[in-house]
Amino acid sequence: MIDKRFRIAAVIGISLVFLLAWVFPIVWSVMNSLKTEQDVLAYPPKFLFAPTLAAYRDVLFGSGSILPNLLSSFIISIGTTIVTMIMAVPAAYALARLRVPGKRFAGFYVLATQMLPPVGIIIPYFLILRNIGWMDTYQGIILIYLSFSLPFAIWLLVSYFEDIPFEMEEAAYIDGASRWKTLWRIIIPQVRGGIAVTVVFVFLNAWNEFLFAVVLSGNTVRPVTIAMFNFVSVEQTLWTKLAAVSVLAMLPVIVLGIVAQKHIVKGLTVGAVKGGGRR
């Protein structure tokens, strides 16, 4: 009896420790973003305090506002998502459904590109962009983001296209639809859910990317993940503002993550499940 009660207590205890460990850095950032400059520096740290939105007001509307950077992040992420989907949806359909010679190789190629270390891509890419004057441009950064978003999106979408029975296309052909019309009117509407999930993850990955952004960003293209360094320097750290910026950078992806909750395992493991060439 005591043994059983002890075990239940232990399970609850361990669970709480891990749940707290995962939530705490995020919650602590939120708390610090709501503190005054005095409260944030208090020692011992204050867990109870009068919350204020002053830090958010400052970082959003004060001098050196990060609104342009948030906008920059959104332009990069949305741009990447649109271009990726326009290319990935047809490609995934072809890989999933059509009899194409070299399909196996195409599938392997998509997988192999995911193995390239990003640093090995950005060095030559940096040289190319410097030569054609595309440094610090949206087209430059969106193009390089395709290197990781396209393979990912294609793999994820293939799994959704494969779920549609072949009779769908055949029925549409019999009904007089061309291949393009069949894809557009019959097939794509049936993978709307899969497309939505893919959009969420492509956006999320683009929002979170850092290495390419560090190399390619400048005064025009400056996403929030880069801009947050403005708030830490050797001389001083602007604690509450840094917290507010961090929270603003976390907010969109947390919302998306929770929206796509049921699909997250599929989204995280895409490609690996079938890895090493299909069929």
Partner: peptide, 20 residues
Amino acid sequence: LDAKDRDVAMVFQSYALYPH
């Protein structure tokens, strides 16, 4: 000739109704 140009109608075993 492609199926779409043959002017034939077909009922499939699985019916193949467009679910959307």
